[in-house]
């Protein structure tokens, strides 16, 4: 039973079917089998958050999920945030406008965390905002512009900035396993 197990995972709206060893981490599945290298691996022990994705609408660390556990799940990665026609998600635009990135390695994880936060809590308190963002590590920016970007995104979304159809709309899970 360490033999490969067939799984089907919906990633950014598209089905990805593969036979995978049980121990294959979801982060590796997304990067190799789904060919989506935007989800980055920074620590493989659940602290840095670079691998944050949305799994059934909830922000989770892909390095702490086995791909076999994600069979049947709906996953959104950073590649799924922009419009099919290319328009950036308001959170992506906000990070650009606020100079919220330098090397860019932690950025996809922060984008997913921020998207998840603002979907569930459109008007987060300072406490709620920091609680979410503190789950992702950045070593380049010192966080000031990342926090500013999240607030900027909050304002843009509140003002009715278009959220691309692909991202998040199907993501509002209620935590059922």
């Amino acid at each position: 039973m360490t033999d490969p197990i067939p799984i089907t995972v919906t990633v950014n709206g598209a089905e990805v079917a593969a036979e995978v060893p049980p121990r294959l981490l979801l982060s590796d599945f997304l990067r190799r089998h789904a060919g989506l290298t935007g989800t980055h691996v920074g620590c493989e022990h659940g602290v840095c958050g670079a691998c944050t994705i949305l799994l059934d609408g909830e922000p989770q660390r892909a390095c702490l999920v086995f791909a076999v556990q994600a069979d049947g799940a709906r996953i959104t990665t950073v590649e799924g945030l922009a419009d099919p026609d290319g328009a950036l998600h308001p959170v992506q635009r906000a990070f650009h406008e606020a100079h919220g990135m330098q090397c860019g390695f932690c950025t996809p994880g922060f984008l997913m965390t921020t998207v998840a936060l603002l979907e569930r809590t459109p008007e987060p308190t300072e406490e709620e905002l920091l609680d979410a963002l503190a789950g992702n590590l950045c070593r380049c920016t010192g966080y000031r512009n990342i926090v500013a970007a999240a607030r900027r995104a909050q304002q843009a979304l509140a003002a009715g900035a278009g959220v691309p159809a692909a991202a998040g709309a199907e993501g509002r899970g209620d935590g059922e396993a």
């Binding site: 659940g46 944050t52 702490l64 965390t113 979410a132 789950g135």
Partner: peptide, 9 residues
């Protein structure tokens, strides 16, 4: 406990 990304799972 941790952060939302931990508590969600």
């Amino acid at each position: 406990i941790g952060h939302p990304q931990i508590r969600s799972r």
